[in-house]
Amino acid sequence: MSSDADTSLLTIDHLTVARGGRTVLHDLDAGVRPGELYGVIGANGSGKSTLVQAVAGLLPREAGDIRYRGRSIRAAHRRALAREIAYLPQNPVCHWPLTVERLVTLGRIPHVGPWARPGEDDIQAVREAMAAVDVEHLASRQVNRLSGGEQRRVLLARALAGEPRLLLADEPTSGLDPYHQLQLLEFLVRRIVHGVSVILVLHNLTLASRFCDRLLLLRDGGALAEGDSAEVLAPDNLARAYGVEARRFSSDGQTAVVPWKRL
């Protein structure tokens, strides 16, 4: 069991997950505290996406447990859990050319119920979610006609519209230019202020060190390191997890970690 089981929002306890006959996560322990931006990093295939999918309840577990606020998510009611935890997949899509407002409203489904119409609360929550990621002005546009950065923000607004306590975001910055990467992470940090906890899968070590409160470094489905960003991003760890040498650059008292060359 994780040492900080009492204070943690989410406890991952000896978790083992297999996909297609291959064990992807093996005996993993980790814990997410309330109100933190928790980064999950690691090489391709190290199990980052599998971890967030397991937390979202999308994958069966072989062994171990995932506890949200002390209760196993296996025991939780599906809809009740959907109201608490929102999941933004790695390549979020919208298959039909819905308007932005209607797409964001889909995030209210766990609150509205399948047959009811969205009420005042729901409309308010949708507006707030759109405002939080600055897409209000796009409300009546068709989502397929937006730029990549706008689409990402709209899909993030969809996830925020459910007013989750925990947001799982799988590489939300992939494919975005530096401006929009920074913008998206700033939106996430602002959500933290509003009491939302975020589990964020990232490839960019510089962004991870700059924005995340704590990091989990995965290697071959296990935790290589978990803790404060500076400790986790130690050269040793990065060499073992990625096989790269990283350099540190300081400016105004802040340190950036940049992968420099292959080992």
């Binding site: 859990l81 935890i85 929102a86 997949p89 797409l103 766990p110």
Partner: peptide, 13 residues
């Protein structure tokens, strides 16, 4: 819900 893909629909309950 499936407009958003299988994983998201599932995560919506």
């Amino acid at each position: 819900a499936l407009s958003l893909g299988e994983d998201t629909a599932s995560s919506l309950g």
